[in-house]
Design a protein around this nucleic acid. Structure first.
Lengths: 252, 252
DNA sequence: CGCAAAACTGTGAATTATTCACAACAAATG
DNA sequence: CATTTGTTGTGAATAATTCACAGTTTTGCG
């Protein structure tokens, strides 16, 4: 595959739905016809499907996760992407890592290097995504009841399952944070699971886009002192970043 | 949603990729324009995406499973569909059932009534499919290592997890059957898991399309005496069906 | 190094698909 | 029963896609 085709594929993967004219503008070094032919090429290899005026990524499990939350999730796609790229840089080879459920985690799954890794996750859609797109990582899915809203696992014995796994680095997501309440999420099941993961991981990396800062959700699962590294996007206010640093958290 | 729109949706779900002219021929009572408008309607509701000359189902996890095996799987789609419809008729409310991994099982997942059910499965893609498309069933995913080829779970403690679950009816798939070898599959992990499920289920229903009869795969996981019901398609030879009946198996 | 073959790219015309506006019709409402 | 609302079909206008061809670059091989 050519460099241009790779670039087009990456572009569409990021945007998930593009028009031909949008592509033509982005890749203005080439003619519309060439891009058209590239799309045909990529479609044959099942990377995407062509639509009326352009193309769309071939949704594997990715769309499963964003499809439901819909527009809200898509809107901050670029922020999440930025965070995921930063997080992927922290992934070392041959470590055992935990990947949380959530759309930021899904982005990280896509950015992950295709290397020897052991990835434990409670999100089956993320597990599938990794296993389909990468050759090398080993994916371990937690077992239990599959939650409709979050597409993640919960259950009585997830905690037991965690006990048998040694997690080096945990990449976690949160839906809300304030100084007073700490990191919070909307579901009780998730909350319990996240706490257990954080307790057992050697290193905890929290990923959160700036739109979620200063919002509170029902269940708090962690405080600043629980995390080692905080990854956010460039739109996050300096004041919060400074406060995190003052608490001994490594902010990226 | 109108009846016609439902019908179009079902048609596209079955075919997975259709052209407008194909739809116009199938639904010749209506004009092309009306069908076009229906497709637009269905696209807005994320049931499908429109392509250049028609439409394609919105692949959730379904495409994940067939996408890899590709054409081979698609070819017997109609047979599997027939089997899945028969199997769905056997599903009772409020029971605990096991759904095997495999494309026939995925078809069954789509045909399942939207009622109170507890469905245990080793296939996360099937679990996601159910949870996204139906409101009522509870899905329990087994935990463990996610296998790349089959998109199913295996691991040391799947057997332990099964012990804590009481399965009433198990819907199983096989990749091969001969009288001498019994029901067989290609992977050792799957084999072990299937055996355990069959041993613990009160009732075992085997689903298998006729193209797989008289083929042998490396690992045998069941004999005729292990199963209660056998579901196959209309192309299956009478001789085999008669032999199954003679062995006390209920053949549908 | 140089030539021939193959593969890739851009252009514009021909084809095809999609949208749009409007009229006819049916169903619902008061 | 008239009016409104929604649905459907028709054909023209628009837009997108394909096709064929020519120019260009790359590749392979003597």
């Amino acid at each position: 595959m050519k460099e241009r085709q790779e670039a087009i594929k990456r572009y569409i993967e990021r945007k998930s739905d593009v028009t031909l004219s949008e592509l033509a503008k982005e890749f203005s070094d080439w003619s519309e016809m060439t891009i058209r032919r590239d799309l045909e090429f990529l479609e044959q290899r099942r990377f995407l499907i062509r639509t009326k005026r352009g193309a769309r990524i071939m949704p594997t499990s990715y769309e499963v996760s964003v499809g439901m939350y819909g527009e809200r999730e898509k809107r901050n796609c670029d922020l999440k992407q930025e965070i995921a790229a930063k997080a992927a840089a922290l992934v070392e080879t041959d470590i055992s890592m935990y990947l949380d459920a959530g759309s930021t985690a899904m982005m990280l799954a896509r950015e992950l290097p295709d290397r020897n890794l052991i990835i434990t996750t409670s999100a089956p859609n993320i597990g599938i995504e990794i296993v389909l797109k990468k050759k090398n990582p080993t994916v371990i899915l937690l077992g239990g009841t599959l939650q409709r809203k979050t597409i993640s696992i919960s259950g009585l014995n997830v905690l037991d399952q965690l006990k048998t796994l040694n997690i080096d680095t945990a990449f976690m997501c949160a839906s809300g944070y304030t100084e007073a309440t700490g990191f919070s999420v909307g579901g009780q099941h998730e909350c319990v699971l996240k706490r257990a993961v954080i307790a057992s991981a050697r290193r905890v990396i929290m990923m959160m886009d700036s739109s979620k800062l200063n919002s509170i959700l029902p269940f708090t699962f962690a405080q600043l002192s629980d995390i080692d590294t905080f990854i956010t996007d460039s739109k996050a206010p300096e004041s919060i970043k400074a406060a995190f640093r003052a608490a001994g958290v490594h902010v990226i």
